[in-house]
Amino acid sequence: MPVLRLLLVAFILCGATAKAQILSIERQAPRPFGYFLGDLLNFDITITAEKGWDLQRASLPRPGPITYWLDLRRLSVEGSPASGKWRLHLTYQNFYDTLDTRQLTVPGLTLTFHSGAALAQAQVPPWGFNVSPLREVQPAFNDPQDLLRPDTPPPHIDQRNDRLGVIISGVLALLSLTGLAFERGWWPFHHRPSRPFSQAARLVHRHIGHDDNSIPGDRFRNALLAMHRAIDMKAGRRLFSEDIASFLVQHPAYKKEAESFARFFASSHRAFFASDERGAQTILPPDSLLAFSRQLATIERAAE
């Protein structure tokens, strides 16, 4: 609803000495016509007082009924004696029940300011506005009960949030349970073939390719790393060269590759700790590494 605002400025002349402390009263009022029963009226009142003068809170109207047809809904005050600017915001509610359009008056305010024992009064003048009837004077009806607007049907409890919560938490629970089962190899993932060596063989092939002899150091190191990860995964822990014997006791199928394991770890040691790829590739040439990885993959498949 577009609200036309009427700016009403009332300067209080310096007639009485007590009023000289109030410099100006400005009221921003809403449109003065077209109000129905129940409408709100908002006023912004700005009072400029001399600095050091304080507003007496007791002189403010109290929220509640002002007259039998007018309620003060809200009242807020901003301002301080130091600034001398006081802003009041008042919201009234009109409850005048009218049969025709007529003029009503919101009563004025008398606000008291004080500085020490001295008092000054700011008069906000009354404000007139027009109220209009809400409905016709003599409505046609058969039964007086028909005059009333119907009841608001009591609502049911809104269950949309409950349903949404159940769906989201249910999906999350299912997802995390699936992830956990996958991670732990629970049903239905307990038959999932875990073939780290087959995977490693593919990776080693990708890193080494068909080069027979010497390959760049980083590719060789990556191939070694892939093998290390596969061996660690098979052992279930990080495996170093001194653990080979115990690993082969746990996985006897790989026993015949014991010598290749030793060569692999020796080559890896040289590549990673001595940074000597050339030496490492002499101990275990790339094609031998490839063959080693394939051999392990073959045993792995056979063991299952």
Binding site: D39, W69, D97, R149
Partner: peptide, 28 residues
């Protein structure tokens, strides 16, 4: 304040028994 059904029915109720300005005749 935007509950128009309540405004309407309040209007019906108020026309049944009119207000008497019991105090401060200058207001309203």
């Amino acid at each position: 304040p935007e509950f128009w059904d309540a405004r309407y029915n309040l209007d019906v109720a108020m026309r049944l028994i009119r207000d008497f300005p019991g105090y401060e005749k200058t207001l309203g």
